[in-house]
Simulated assay, not measured.
Amino acid sequence: MNITSHFISCDWGTSNFRLRLIETETLQVIWENRTDQGVKRRYAAFKAQTALDQKDFYLDYLMGEVQKLPDGHRSHPIIASGMSSSNIGLCELPYADLPFDEGGNTFISKSIPIATNQDLLLISGVKSETGMMRGEEVQAIGLGEYLHSYSEGILLLPGTHSKHISYRQGSFHKLKNFMTGELFEVLGKNSILSNSIEIAEWDAQGKKAFLEGFHLGLVEGSTPNLLGIRARHVVEDMDKKDNYFRLSGLLIGDELSYLRSSGENVFLAAPGAIFELYKTGLETFVAPDKLILLDDAVLERALLIGQRKMLLLHAK
């Protein structure tokens, strides 16, 4: 695979699809388009038709989006990370094993010719005995550029399924998964708690409620305190908007409880609102010099750094 002045970055997640034109040297985003056609929706559409096999069905959509790029930039190499290499994606690749280094040398990948002098590079995920991920491993090797000055720590990548990855001297080792985001959605929409919470905006009152829940989750765990969310509403007539953040705090506190006595560096890398929630909780028990904050902008660039590393690796 040849490296040109630009490459096409494809971030194909479960719920969303994003295509970007990237200047290789600077990683400047020249053009970007997002759709709601993540692999979950695409796979449902694939199953509803019979004209194309799975690979061609996904390629048909991908190349249709590529044709929207500016003239002269539609034939650059494409690199796809995330769920595109899953069993409901474009082409299933097996998971690589931990540990892995910042170069991504042990990742499993596949180069697929899609046009004359144009290839698609698919990157698979990583697994351990305690978890798995697809997409975050590429972010991790990009984030490695920001971790060089630290000998070790725990990298937190919160989300629907949060990932905690142990980092030590340029390599990533143990992986833990937490279904915190999905649990919040399921409990908030499909459990008895759904009538006791209401979506709210983050403010001083929301922060107070979040920290109350966070402390309970951190010290006692979430399970003994979940029904208390409903009791606060039904028995004590507490605000359902407060309960929204109290439930969030309870689940996040439970997720982070094992870090209370670790004393390790904690690297937090997360987008927008999630970043603020985890930061608020972590600041209550992690020393300032041990909490390294990597915001949305860093996380966005890290994905591109990781994708460029993989392209360069395959160009050798």
Score class of each variant (00 low, 15 high):
Glu185Cys: 01
Gln67Met: 09
His6Arg: 14
Arg301Met: 10
Trp31Thr: 12
Asn190Glu: 13
Ser262Lys: 05
Gly38Leu: 02
Ala45Val: 00
Gly13Ala: 09
Leu19His: 09
Ser124Ala: 14
Leu121Gln: 03
Phe172His: 05
Ile274Cys: 04
Ile22Val: 09
Tyr58Gln: 06
Glu25Asp: 15
Ser124His: 01
Ile305Gln: 03
His6Thr: 13
Ser248His: 01
Leu312Ile: 06
Pro224Leu: 07
Gly306Glu: 00
Phe210Asp: 08
Val39Lys: 08
Leu312Gly: 05
Leu27Met: 07
Val235Tyr: 10
Thr280Ile: 00
Pro94Ala: 06
Ala273Val: 12
Arg134Cys: 05
Asp36Phe: 07
Phe107Trp: 06
Phe275His: 11
Asn190Met: 05
Ile192Leu: 15
Gly181Tyr: 02
Ala115Met: 05
Gly144Met: 00
Ile165Asn: 07
Glu198His: 09
Met133Val: 12
Lys279Met: 07
Val126Pro: 08
Thr130Gln: 14
Glu152Asp: 15
Thr116Val: 11
Ala287Phe: 08
Glu283Cys: 04
Pro70Cys: 12
Ala297Pro: 02
Ala80Cys: 13
Leu52Pro: 02
Ile274Leu: 13
Phe214Tyr: 14
Thr26Ser: 15
Leu19Trp: 05
Ala270Val: 00
Phe178Tyr: 15
Met179Trp: 06
Gln49Tyr: 04
Trp12Asn: 09
Glu145Pro: 10
Leu147Asn: 11
Gly82Met: 06
Phe107Pro: 00
Lys110Asn: 11
Leu251Met: 08
Ser111Arg: 01
Ala302Arg: 02
Glu102Ala: 11
Ile22Lys: 06
Ile8Tyr: 00
Gly82Glu: 10
Val138Gly: 09
Ser9Ile: 03
Ser86Trp: 03
Ile22Ser: 02
Pro158Glu: 10
Leu299Gly: 05
Leu59Trp: 04
Ser109Gln: 03
Trp202Cys: 04
Asp11Gly: 09
Tyr146Ile: 01
Asp119Gly: 00
Val298Arg: 06
Asn87Phe: 05
